[in-house]
């Protein structure tokens, strides 16, 4: 059965894993928050600094989602899919690129910016970081759409796909949110297990139930 074995949620300068806040950095700007959160992981991954904010969000959510489990070692990563979604595609970075070409006297489009003007670069960054080479899909919908994600993930696992990294990764004019969940096949799911079978209701509940700190 397709089962959610872990999830991470980032919003309001906080990072929550499986519903509980594990990092809270109040009074930081968005950029500072992303950098501090990265530093808290004590990784050596300088590429992080080259990413746009949306990819940084995806990167962090993924690190936290797979920190205390064996998702990346238990599953065949060539049969692990990444299915992400958001509402703004890459508009935040699109605007940065557009600003670099608006003024003909100061016209310096940057390849390092332009490359992030595609939403599925978030998928690419996660794939590179964790060597995940399965199916890809990036959907754009007005808000978190548990129905669409669940529906497509179930379709994928009926084909070659064995595990899925699903998510909502949205960075749009300083409004930001990342929600990443890990799905793999678990047989004989215990009723009391912290794992949840993946369906529209369960994923929507998990998405809505994070208890943020005030």
């Amino acid at each position: 059965m397709n089962t959610i074995i872990s999830y991470a949620h980032i919003k309001h300068n906080q990072i929550a894993v499986n519903g509980k806040v594990v990092l809270h950095l109040p009074n930081k700007s968005y950029t500072e928050f992303l950098t501090e959160a990265y530093k808290s992981l004590q990784l050596s991954y300088p590429k992080f600094y080259k990413m746009d904010a949306q990819c940084k969000l995806a990167f962090l959510a993924m690190e936290f989602a797979c920190k205390d489990n064996h998702f990346l070692t238990e599953n065949d990563l060539s049969k692990t899919a990444i299915v992400f979604s958001n509402s703004s595609a890459s508009l935040e970075t699109d605007q940065v690129h557009q600003n670099s070409i608006n003024d003909k006297q100061n016209y310096f489009p940057s390849p390092a910016v332009f490359v992030y003007t595609l939403p599925n670069i978030t998928i690419g960054e996660i794939a590179i970081r964790h060597h995940i080479t399965g199916e890809n899909a990036f959907f754009v919908s007005p808000q978190f759409n548990g129905k669409l994600l669940t529906n497509y993930i179930h379709l994928l696992t009926q084909t070659n796909t064995e595990a899925v990294v699903g998510g909502w990764i949205n960075s749009d004019n300083n409004t930001y949110e990342a929600f990443i969940f890990l799905v793999q096949n678990v047989e004989n799911l215990n009723k009391n297990s912290i794992f949840k079978p993946l369906n529209q209701t369960s994923i929507t509940n998990l998405y809505n139930q994070t208890s943020w700190m005030h």
């Binding site: 300088p46 590429k47 080259k50 310096f108 489009p109 940057s110 390849p111 390092a112 490359v115």
Partner: peptide, 16 residues
């Protein structure tokens, strides 16, 4: 650890 995008950015740097 520079890559191909960095090489293109250096071209932008020289121009800018």
């Amino acid at each position: 650890g520079l890559d191909s995008i960095d090489a293109l950015e250096l071209i932008v740097l020289l121009e800018k």
